[in-house]
Each structure stands twice: as C-alpha cells, then as structure tokens.
Nucleic acid binder design. Structure first.
Lengths: 88, 88, 88, 88
DNA sequence: ACCGAAGTTGTATCAC
DNA sequence: GTGATACAACTTCGGT
C-alpha cells in the first residue's frame, strides 16, 4: 500500500469528472450572479446621474424587500398554525 | 538587521497589557451573551413543557422582530429624506 | 386539561396570556443579548481606535475559545474517568 | 397619504415616475440575482446528494476564484507595462 | 447522530 | 480610509 492510498482511503475514489462538472456549473452560475450585480451597480450609477440619492434608494429598496420577506414569513406562520391544528 | 526585525517591524511594539485588557473585556461580554442564550433556551424548553410549539413560537418572535426592524428602517429613511430636503 | 380534551376543535383553546408571557420573556432576553452584542462591537471599535487590528483580535479570541472548549472537554473526560475509578 | 408623503409635498419635485422606474429595474435585477443564488444552492444540494462534501467544494471554488482574480490582476499589470512601453 | 433551517460571525463591497 | 451594507461561511437548534 503506498502513501496516497493510506490517506483517507474512503475518499480516494472520488469521481473527479463528476465533481468537476458540479464545480463548473457553480462557477458558471457565480459568473452570472456577478454580471447581474454589475448591472445593478450600473442602474444605481445611472440613477445617480439623473440626480437621485443612491443612499435613499437603497433604503427604500431594503424596506420594500423587508415587506416582501414579512409577507412570506406570515404565510409560513399561517401554514404552521394550520398544521398544528390538524395535528390536534 | 536580523530576521525578527525584518518581520513587520511596525507591529513589534504592541502594548500587550493594553491588548490583553481589550481581549478580556470582550471575553467577559461573550460569556455574558452565552449565559443569556442559555436562558433563552430554557424558556423555550419550559414553554414546550407547557404544550406550546417551539417552532411556531420562533416564527412568531421572528415576525415581531421583523416588525421592529421595519419600524427602525422607516425612521431611518425618514431621516434621510429630511436630510435630503435640507440640502435642496 | 389533558390531550384528549384538546382534540375537538371547539376546545382549541390556546392560552394566549400564557403564551404571551413566554414570548415576552424571550424577547426581553433577546434584547439583553442584543445589547451585549452591541457592547462587544463597541469594545472592538475602541480597540481599533487604539490602533489594534480587529481581524487579528477576532482570531486570537477564537483560538482562545477553542482552547477553552478543548480544556473543558478534557476536564469532562477526566471526571468521567475519576467517577469510573471510584466505582471500581 | 402615508407618513412620508406628508412632508412638504409642494416643494419636493422628485420625479416619482422616473424614480419608480429605476427602483423597479433594480428590483427586477435583484430578483434575478436571488434566483441565481437559489440555483447555486440547488447545485450544492445535488452535489451533496451525490456524496460530495459541500464545505470542501466551497473551498475549492474559493481557491479557483482567487487564482482567477490573481491572473486577471497580473494581466492588468502586464497591460499597463505594455502600454507604458508603447508610450516610450 | 444527522438533517434542514435559522441565526451568528467574519469578510468584502460600496458610498462618502 | 472609514462606517455601513450585503454576502459567504460556519454554528446552533429543534426535530427525526
């Protein structure tokens, strides 16, 4: 038995091709995300160029995002209530 | 110039006693936080023992926290608006 | 009230007052925790103001915490051994 | 009319329609970004389901990203050199 | 003991 | 460069 085989024998048989495929899918998606983030920055820059206050815009967007999140959470709680009632 | 003096000479004169004091203050506060987290767990356990659903309780508390956060954010936006108006 | 009595829908009487009391105890504790977290941040800020590197401080504290946990674990094992010996 | 709209409406000539358009473009892009992040999480989950270690995968991707950034940086420096040479 | 979800911590990005 | 925001990574917690 050589040195490499002695190290973590159970993980020696990793399917490199399979792993590589996953890695590359993720990297492609991350590149997509990065591009979208660039686009967002550009829109902010354009808005700023039109005299709008970026800081305020961010806050407004953050507030609207909170509203959405809150709505989702409310639905989740409702579902939990209904489940709990069903189990009584 | 010897080896030690070449390595990050500007950080050689760290005031160890001063640093230690900061570290210990933080560690004391972290211990305090840990204790509070323990207390919270105990209250959840007690509530569960009284027939309440911990998962639902967590969601409810999360919702109420969101409400508070949203209120704070609204105030922040309001302040930003007032600032922006003052600058017009 | 036992489990069976809770089954019929008309007796789905969640004790709101009781629940509210638990919720409020938890929220009070969470506020306490939040305040402690604020304090910690302030100490880091103060340390930074005194020229210390916050990132490194965090590392130091993290290492000391690991050591502490390790020491506690070792003491637990030791106690188990001692108990076992006492029972021989 | 809500709280925010009540503030000196007559002297604040923000172009609401224009602002709204910017906000909505950003929100649309953020939704796109969120969807991509979801996709990434799904790929990780699928990889995990195939027996791969997500934590290690993240490390691998992070290392490859650093390499890529480093390579891009080096190319940038190289271009600067070439430009400088061209200007001699 | 593991899993998924939630929360926390640490780091990077961004606007000023 | 600094403080604030957002993201990524890690830990915790309750349930199975």
């Amino acid at each position: 038995m050589n040195k490499l085989e002695r190290i973590s024998p159970e993980s020696v048989d990793v399917d490199g091709g399979h792993l590589r495929a996953f890695i590359e899918r993720i990297e492609r998606l991350e590149e997509e995300k990065r591009a979208t983030m660039e686009d967002i920055k550009e829109v902010y820059a354009e808005a700023k160029g039109n005299g709008f206050d970026v800081k305020i815009m961010r806050k407004v967007i953050s507030l609207r995002r909170m509203d959405r999140d809150k709505r989702v959470e409310e639905e989740t709680v409702l579902e939990l209530y209904l489940q709990a009632l069903g189990e009584l």
